[in-house]
């Protein structure tokens, strides 16, 4: 992925900064410029909103056929996490044994390497989830 595109999204990717609709109060991650519920009424009223990074696993899947960036980590876990603020985020769960995985388990975000552009390229960092 282009260095510039990753870089622009760093603040939100490192710190889980989404947006909150000033009209209905719904929280979105990744950030949105328009609220899908309030549409035009929300224009100009979407504020940056930092998620605390805590939530629980709604559902998960164990991935055995990995893309090249995750080859070293397979089998690995991808989950949909219900954040305490209500928004749902898809992400990798790390530092967990497969037989300890449970729907409803508490997780929090941490920063990990998500990919790199080869041995000479930029390293990309982002959030992953770890058991609390």
């Amino acid at each position: 992925m282009a260095v510039a595109r990753f870089w622009r999204e760093n603040a939100s990717r490192y710190n889980l900064i989404g947006t909150k609709c000033g009209v209905c109060g719904r929280v979105y991650f990744p950030p949105r410029s328009v609220c899908p519920t309030c549409h035009r009424k929300s224009i100009g009223k979407m504020e940056p909103f930092k998620l605390k990074g805590e939530g629980e696993v709604l559902t998960y899947s164990i991935v055995h056929e990995a893309p090249s960036q995750l080859e070293m980590q397979k089998p690995y876990v991808i989950a949909i996490v219900q954040m305490d603020e209500g928004v749902r985020i898809t992400g990798q769960i790390i530092d967990v044994e497969l037989d300890e995985l449970k729907v409803g388990m508490k997780v929090r975000t941490t920063l990990r390497k998500v990919s790199d552009d080869g041995a000479a390229g930029v390293i990309h960092y982002g959030y992953k989830f770890m058991p609390v």
């Binding site: 490192y14 980590q73 530092d95 920063l111 990990r112 390497k113 390293i123 960092y125």
Partner: peptide
């Protein structure tokens, strides 16, 4: 360290 950990991820944590 795990395969997705380095000095940066350790320092941030």
């Amino acid at each position: 360290p795990g395969p997705d950990e380095d000095v940066i991820t350790i320092a941030v944590e």
